[in-house]
Structures are given as C-alpha cells and as structure tokens.
C-alpha cells in the first residue's frame, strides 16, 4: 500500500533563515512514525510545514495520493490531517466541552467518539464544564489530543506529547497512544526515548534540518551506539 504521507526534498525558510534543507521521509498507512532529533533539529518546523503553517520553499509533500504543499492550513485539516502543536494550543478561555465542539467541524461531537475520549482520558469527563485554562499540564495535553480525534482523521501530527509530564502520566499517555494507533496513522515528535520505543513502528531522525536516519524503531531501540550518535543519549540516562 502506498504511503499516506511522503515528503521529498522539502525546504522551509522562516524569514531569512533556511531551516529545512531537503527533508525526505514517508509515513506508512496505519503505522506510528516517530520523528526524533536534538533540540533545534527542525522537528517542529517539519510538522508545521506539513500542516501548511510554514510554506515549503521547495520540494513536494504528498498526502493521501495528491500533492498538498501549496494548500492552506484549513484545507489540509479538511483533507484529514489533525495537528497537536508543541504548546498544545488549547483554548484556555473555553470549557473542555467548548474546545471539543470547536474541534468537531461537522457539527456536534458524536457520542461514540466522546465515549472513547472519556475512556482514554477520564479527566475530560470530570472537567467537562471546566475552563480549559484551569486544567493541569497533562490534562491540557489530553484535551489537545482529544480535540484531534473528536472526529475521524486520517493523520495525526503530534508534537512532543510528553513534554513536561510526570512519569506516571507518561505511562497513561503511552496507553492512550496504543489505543489511538489501532485506527489512525500518526507522526509523533518525541524527546522521551522510552515513549518513542514503546510506540514507534518506524522512525526518522533529524539533525540540522535534514533527515539523518530512517528505519524501524525496533532497530534503533536495539542499537545504543546508533542512538548515541544520532541523538546523543543512551537509554539509561534518558528516560
């Protein structure tokens, strides 16, 4: 089966800065691809370029069979891409419920999907009428993910879902992503290697605006020297 998402030679400039220098990788359907890399490698820029929030200055992005690098962000969303940004982008002045109503483009959130969200993240039910701004960091992350799945989407782009979360919550997040994987394709940026190895099927590693490694997550997880070289970390020191 063809890949759901494919980037070829993607270049991105932010103002006068040249950030992405020819990014090539693909995300297979019904898989979870991890995008790893050191701070400043260009991971967020890569997701933002896919989402149309930065415009690719060269290269092609194919999604679900057609070239999309010239589409505007709302059009990309309508084609089935959902984006959970690094800062989560929740609407703090809206309640949890209102956040999900906004995310449900086609009308009211569907009950079956809401039940699934409540099963994944019980806090969403508990704080249903609470202001999103009053949620804890972890709960905000859960809300941001809930918003991305309140309607069926083909591809979820998630930027550092475990950022700033306590270890216990990270485990809950891993469980939630296991469940999400069953029916969605995901591209996830992560710094937490434990999280990445628990969930990733495939992996792409970035450095200085380029992809420097592509392969199966399991292979990278088994090769500490490679991890050390690509990410400057070893399994034991970085949890």
């Amino acid at each position: 089966m063809a890949d759901l998402l494919e980037l070829r030679g993607v270049n991105t400039h932010i103002g006068q800065y040249h950030i992405l220098h020819g990014v090539d990788f693909a995300v297979a359907r019904n898989s979870l691809t991890m995008l790893l890399g050191r701070n400043g490698a260009g991971k967020t820029t890569c997701l933002r370029t896919i989402m149309g929030l930065w415009r690719a200055s060269a290269g092609t992005i194919r999604f679900d069979g057609s070239e999309v690098q010239t589409l505007e962000t709302p059009a990309l969303a309508r084609r089935g891409i959902a984006y959970v940004p690094e800062n989560m982008g929740i609407f703090a002045g809206l309640t949890v419920r209102e956040n999900l109503i906004v995310a449900a483009r086609e009308g009211e959130p569907d009950d079956r999907r809401l039940d699934r969200i409540f099963m994944l993240f019980p806090a969403m039910k508990k704080f249903w009428h609470g202001l999103a701004g009053n949620l804890s960091g972890g709960q905000k992350q859960m809300l941001a993910i809930s918003r991305a799945i309140v309607e069926p989407r083909k591809l979820l782009l998630v930027d550092e879902p475990t950022k700033g979360l306590a270890p216990a919550i990270i485990q809950a997040m891993i469980d939630a992503f296991q469940e999400l994987k069953r029916d969605t394709t995901l591209l996830v940026v992560e710094q937490n290697f434990h999280f990445a190895r628990s969930l990733g099927d495939a992996v792409a590693v970035m450095d200085s605006g380029r992809i420097v490694h592509r392969g199966r997550m399991a292979d990278l997880a088994a090769d500490e020297t490679l991890q050390q070289r690509l990410l400057g970390l070893s399994l034991d020191t970085h949890q």
Partner: peptide, 19 residues
C-alpha cells in the same frame, strides 16, 4: 465559540479546518 477561540489562537482555529 470560533470567534472566542480565534481571539486566543488563530493558528489553532485554522489547524482545526476553519478559514
């Protein structure tokens, strides 16, 4: 709701599919 959401974060409203 969209107006209130947009006042907070335009990019996110667009990322959810609204012009």
């Amino acid at each position: 709701l969209l107006i209130r959401a947009g006042v907070e974060n335009i990019e996110m409203v667009e990322s959810l599919g609204y012009r």
